[in-house]
Design a protein around this nucleic acid. Structure first.
Lengths: 157, 157, 157, 157
DNA sequence: TTTT
DNA sequence: TTTT
């Protein structure tokens, strides 16, 4: 089955800090809004228009913890994920919909030059975490090692 | 300004035919739903689960006309565009949101072996339109030539 | 580290069957060429030009086996991966380069209506494999279960 | 025709300044290398490995001029484009290949806090250019207005 | 040749 | 609610 693709890629700024939710089984989930901007010149009026689009980003487990630890309101991030429209019953009995981006991968784009405890970053230094750590790929259980190896098998070619 | 990215890429099947809307100035707009599927095995129960996600696709002007002409319910398509969340006032006074994919580019993935007037397609032949025609790139006024040249200038390098 | 992105997405047709290579440790690797097309109208001459671009695709382990089993020359596929430029010493002593797409994910786009042993596919049915099976995500050791769960944890949100 | 996709998306740092080439007809072209990084832990040895991948980026006309003006070695950029493998005859008579990324869109990711003449940027300020200007979409002739409107038509939907 |  |  399938033969389909559902992919979203965003570069934008966090409109708020990461909000965490913890579950009984040990899982967790982080949510934050990302803003993207679009600018164009109105053909009729000639005036410059800027629109901001807001995206509801959802990240799980290990990835959520990394985001909560290193991201804050205003930071720039690249996120890649899937579109998912949740629905729920509103108090008035109507069905409501909310479209979210469920993150599969992300990378931080805001240089971190200062660290609380830490090694004064030069230039564009990133948090003290590996690519491995903040590249999350659909891992479902946080207790497990992340293990989304990228060609890490040293095959001889 | 900007430094942001807002990109969606989908491969899926049309859940319905293209619905057209025509505007006074000569512009038009087509809407259709696309379904994408996701399958996974539930860890607890071991059962196979398939989820279908529905996406509201919006395409404009020349691109809308091409889609209306060549696409029908059930067809497979690749679309690329931007996420846009519209809001409106519901009858109950509440603000409602609807997230749409505003198409910037698309290509048909359903082989068309039969044509009303025409040339029996070999293998995977596409509709009688060029890549130029169905590659729309943000053109705003349908009367204009589409003209989104792709390296079509024969520069000597 | 990192903060970088290296992503390629292709939809195209196989120019040849999948060529497999097996390694001692149990790993394997499949290679095949994919063609993409680009069309445009030359501005000076007004003539229609079509260019074909060839891409060297490399897929590993479980994914390679799935591709070898279900793909053949002429089939259409979506592949997603990373650009990697290999270099080697040519016989003449010069360094040569070859750029490859190392696959991280793929999905088949050619409808399979007939199967050797098999269940006549309805509509657009795909090979007898799950999304799980042909969605490979960087798994390095084929003996392992693939396990790239996509939200398969039934978290209550 | 077509029904294919040829897309590359990179976030990386410039390994060198933009090299410009000007043509007789008024067109121009800029070239620069982009580095992307990949990190993983070798399974056998447990050691951390970082690989750098180099990409040959080619940007045309107006986009090239914007890049030359605002980008320098070390800057971070997002580029989106198509893979294109050039071939040429080497002196030894052999055919050589070089794979390039032909840019269709880009956005700068290095904050510009200082400007030659200018307004001291706060935080993450970008160059004095609009999204319109550095979003190039296949425009072929630089004398023309760029005009890749993004929904700039104020249609009432 | 970049960056962390 | 971000950023430029």
């Amino acid at each position: 089955m399938s033969g389909t693709l559902n992919k979203v890629m965003l570069i934008g700024h966090l409109g708020d800090d990461v909000k965490m939710h913890y579950f009984e089984g040990g899982g967790c989930l982080g949510r934050f809004p990302i803003a993207t901007n679009e600018s164009y010149t109105n053909r009729q009026t000639g005036e410059r228009v800027t629109n901001t689009e807001w995206h509801n980003v959802v990240v799980r487990n290990k990835g959520a913890e990394v985001c909560e630890k290193y991201l804050k309101k205003g930071d720039k991030i690249y996120v890649e994920g899937r579109l998912k429209t949740r629905q729920w019953q509103a108090e008035d009995g109507n069905t409501r919909y909310s479209t979210e981006i469920h993150v599969q991968d992300f990378t931080f784009l805001t240089p971190k030059n200062e660290h609380p405890g830490g090694y004064q970053g030069q230039q564009q230094s990133q948090p003290a975490q590996s690519d491995q750590q903040h590249r999350q790929s659909n891992q479902a259980i946080p207790q497990q090692p992340i293990g989304q190896q990228q060609d890490g098998d040293d095959l001889p070619f």
